[in-house]
Nucleic acid binder design. Structure first.
Length: 487
RNA sequence: GGCCCCAUGGUCAAGUGGUCUAAGACACCGCCCUUUCACGGCGGUAACCCGGGUUCGAAUCCCGGUGGGGUCACCA
């Protein structure tokens, strides 16, 4: 069996899309699973829209997800260069070959002419490919057209005796297309830049790609590519077309469905582990009941046979749940480290942190992480630990402070806390109880007002741990402040 | 419109002719845990698109509808 060589070949024309990330992941998993090579190639032949900036975004996002590549931009390799705009002579050469084989011809039609032609065809209700106007131009015709100042594009001549083309697809089985439905298509634009269908074939062949794993939207292109492989005398790779990721309305996921860029999720504080896990579950399943998978576990289990044929709706709820799961389950140091930039951004933290401050922060994160969907949510949960004062009191919290036993309770608690040598969570628990005893109350009568005074809310994490995090002075001060307010 | 793909609960999905009065997960609802909220635990509601075949037997195979989607560029 031939060695596994797969590639991810994005166009750097915008933010890195969820769908692209899944294609990259599946290719990467396939390569790792079978001990193959994962190639990263940049398809930047759309000069108008391509940019180095988005290329860099893509690379950064891949690295963030934990997907590395063996050959490709930045890392190099024996089949480079890995940017299509740096491989132009190659395409030129093979276009010449097709030209000389008469499998391609020069087309002098202008874009305007073609657009008009298409419109006319569409009006008749019979939209198909190119009319074939330039199919059989004589050298004299060509010379005349060129004298008019027209620059030719090169078109592939779709054979008319080919019948049907069968795409053998690893996820969809055999898919046949009728050759007569395929019009002659451009392989080299008039500016010498190859089109997608041509460049992809030349590159996949020259890079010895064994399996082409990509999104289903490319399935209708595949017969054209097979035609090119045949004309050039090359063996076709194996194809695997993965179904699309859909938005809530079941159309192909796009910006109007919400955040589609990987970067946006990164910025909101989604963990790469959650993203990878989620993406893998979109169109693939392990078959068992387990749904939590690390990259390593996925590598062990991934296979194309278990890739689904039907499209999958992007389910933010599930992503959110997965992310929360990873936030709760990952080592606390890891989550703390990831949290720091978000806390800085929210103005709560200035780095560098002293070791004591870091330990303190760990306690805070450990306490609040069960409330988080993403790390960006931190800002809504940590104010009471970073601020000196409690700012707003909820209505119910305010009410809780009006109970008659509150002054006595708070006075006792404040005194006990200040007298206490070290306010650990455990100590706090005892003090709460003792203060209640002094004031002649227990249970909710203790906890609700104290919580209200310390946090401004009647719900939240364990009170004893909150007290330990706040420290003696702030606890005493907030109790006193609540009392003042009540008077 | 032509061509192509797809079709199990709201969503992701298991299921490859009998063990399906159809698994699991998310979401939703209820109960428990808890000073509260959340986390967690337990339980519940909820599905084989329709019609024909094939077969002793069909969610599973075939055909036809219907529905959804993709694609028809000198974009990729």
């Amino acid at each position: 069996m031939q060695p596994v060589r797969v590639r991810f070949a994005p166009s750097p024309t915008g933010p890195f899309h969820i769908g692209g990330a899944r294609s990259a992941l599946f290719n990467w998993l396939f390569a790792r699973r079978y001990g193959g090579v994962f190639i990263l190639r940049i398809e930047d032949t759309d000069l108008e829209r391509s940019s180095r900036e988005s290329e860099e975004n893509i690379l950064a996002a891949l690295r963030w997800l934990g997907l590395d590549w063996d050959e490709g931009v930045e890392v190099g390799g024996p089949n480079g260069p890995y940017r299509q705009t740096e491989r132009l002579e190659l395409y030129q050469r093979y276009a010449e070959q097709l030209l000389s084989q008469k499998d391609a011809y020069r087309c002098y039609c202008t874009e305007e002419e073609l657009a008009a032609e298409r419109e006319a065809l569409l009006a008749e209700g019979a939209l198909s490919g190119y009319s074939g106007r330039c199919r059989n131009l004589s050298p004299e015709d060509c010379a005349r057209l060129e004298a008019e100042g027209r620059k030719p594009a090169i078109r592939f001549r779709v054979p008319d005796n080919q019948g049907t083309i069968v795409v053998r697809d690893l996820v969809r089985g055999e898919v046949s297309f009728d050759c007569s439905d395929i019009g002659d298509f451009i392989i080299l634009k008039s500016d010498g830049i190859p089109t997608y269908n041509f460049a992809v074939v030349v590159d996949d062949h020259c890079m010895s790609v064994s399996h082409v794993i990509r999104a289903e939207e490319h399935l209708p292109n595949t017969p054209r590519q097979i035609l090119l492989y045949n004309a050039l005398g090359w063996e076709t790779p194996q194809f695997a077309h993965v179904s699309l990721i859909l938005g809530k309305d079941r159309s192909k996921m796009s910006k109007r469905h919400g955040a589609t860029a990987i970067e946006q999720y990164q910025e909101k504080g989604y963990l790469p582990e959650a993203m990878v896990n989620f993406l893998a579950l979109l169109g693939w399943s392990a078959g068992g009941e387990e749904e939590i998978f690390s990259l390593e576990e996925l590598t062990r289990q991934f296979s194309l046979e278990r890739v689904s044929k039907s499209p999958a709706v992007f389910d933010l709820d599930k992503l959110n749940w997965l992310n929360g799961h990873y936030i709760r389950q990952s080592p606390i140091e890891y989550i703390t480290d990831l949290s720091i930039p978000f806390l800085e951004k929210a103005g709560y933290l200035k780095t560098p942190l002293t070791p004591e401050r870091y330990e303190w922060l760990k306690e805070v994160i450990a306490l609040v992480r069960k409330y988080l969907v993403c790390l960006d949510d931190l800002k809504d949960h940590v104010g009471i630990y970073f601020n000196e004062e409690v700012e707003v009191l909820e209505e119910e919290a305010r009410e809780a402070l009006t109970a008659p036993h509150v002054p006595a309770l708070f006075e006792a608690l404040a005194r006990l806390v200040l007298d206490c040598p070290a306010l650990s969570a455990e100590a706090a628990k005892g003090l709460l109880k003792a203060a209640g005893k002094e004031a002649g109350v227990k249970g909710k009568q203790i906890f609700i007002p104290v919580r209200a005074a310390l946090t401004g809310s009647i719900e939240g994490p364990d009170l004893d741990r909150i007290m330990a995090i706040l420290g003696k002075e702030r606890v005493a001060r907030r109790l006193a402040a609540a009392l003042d307010r009540g008077l």
